[in-house]
């Protein structure tokens, strides 16, 4: 059972490594979109430091959303999704392996790149570790919730715009606590409770989302 999941994880990681452009595109979007903000709102350091955490979180949300399309789409097209459904291992476990592989090539990179972005936005020193910590706890939840939306939309007529409508409302709690955790550390109030709530949301999503994703995938294969 676990060997099937780890084989799937290795396959997805290998596929992502063979085509590094796709996962790196998310980072390019992240940095490029961020560089628009100093141009748009003016480059005064106080404003950038004040809105920095929120802007980086919103962009992380959108970067995860953009990457969701490749989570199920190619497997759905070439038929490997049907093999996953027929496999002896429970689909819910395989779904977790797929989401983990996707997160390692998207959310983890975003979190790793975030201290650099925090420097670009002139955030204070505390943000350099608080921001990646919050993103490490938050982005897996984003991937799991987004995987539900992406799986529901398999085979629909209008894909990615609708994905934003379905998924972004579910992302709002993660955004609220993610930003307030970083802001808490930046303002010297501490953000431990918010980080714990982010961790709780991750655990709840990890426990419940695989069932919704698996149901949606079974529906798509009917």
């Amino acid at each position: 059972m676990l060997s099937a999941a780890s084989a799937l994880l290795r396959r997805d990681l290998r596929l992502a490594l063979r085509r590094p452009g796709e996962s790196l595109l998310g980072i390019v979007f992240f940095v490029l979109a961020l560089s628009l903000f100093p141009l748009g709102v003016g480059a005064s350091p106080e404003i950038l430091a004040r809105i920095g955490a929120g802007v980086i979180w919103v962009l992380a949300l959108l970067a995860v959303l953009l990457g969701l399309e490749r989570l199920w789409q190619s497997d759905h097209e070439d038929g490997s999704l049907e093999l996953l459904l027929l496999a002896a291992a429970p689909l819910e476990l395989l779904v977790v392996a797929k989401c983990l592989a996707h997160w390692l090539t998207s959310g983890l990179i975003l979190a790793a790149a975030s201290p650099l972005l925090a420097l670009l936005m002139g955030l204070p020193g505390e943000a350099l570790w608080a921001l990646p910590a919050a993103l490490l706890l938050g982005t897996p939840t984003l991937t799991l919730l987004g995987a539900i939306g992406a799986a529901l939309l398999l085979g629909s007529r209008r894909g990615s715009v609708l994905a934003a409508l379905l998924v972004l409302p579910l992302y709002i709690p993660v955004l609220i606590f993610g930003v307030s955790a970083v802001d808490g550390y930046v303002m010297g109030l501490g953000g431990r409770p918010q980080l714990l709530i982010l961790a709780a949301m991750l655990l709840a999503a990890l426990a419940l989302a695989p069932f919704a994703i698996a149901a949606a995938l079974r529906l798509a294969a009917e």
């Binding site: 539900i148 529901l152 939309l153 379905l166 409302p169 579910l170 919704a212 149901a215 949606a216 529906l219």
Partner: peptide
């Protein structure tokens, strides 16, 4: 059925 799953998640 797809929308029903979304409604339950919501």
């Amino acid at each position: 059925r797809a929308a029903a799953i979304l409604a339950i998640v919501g």
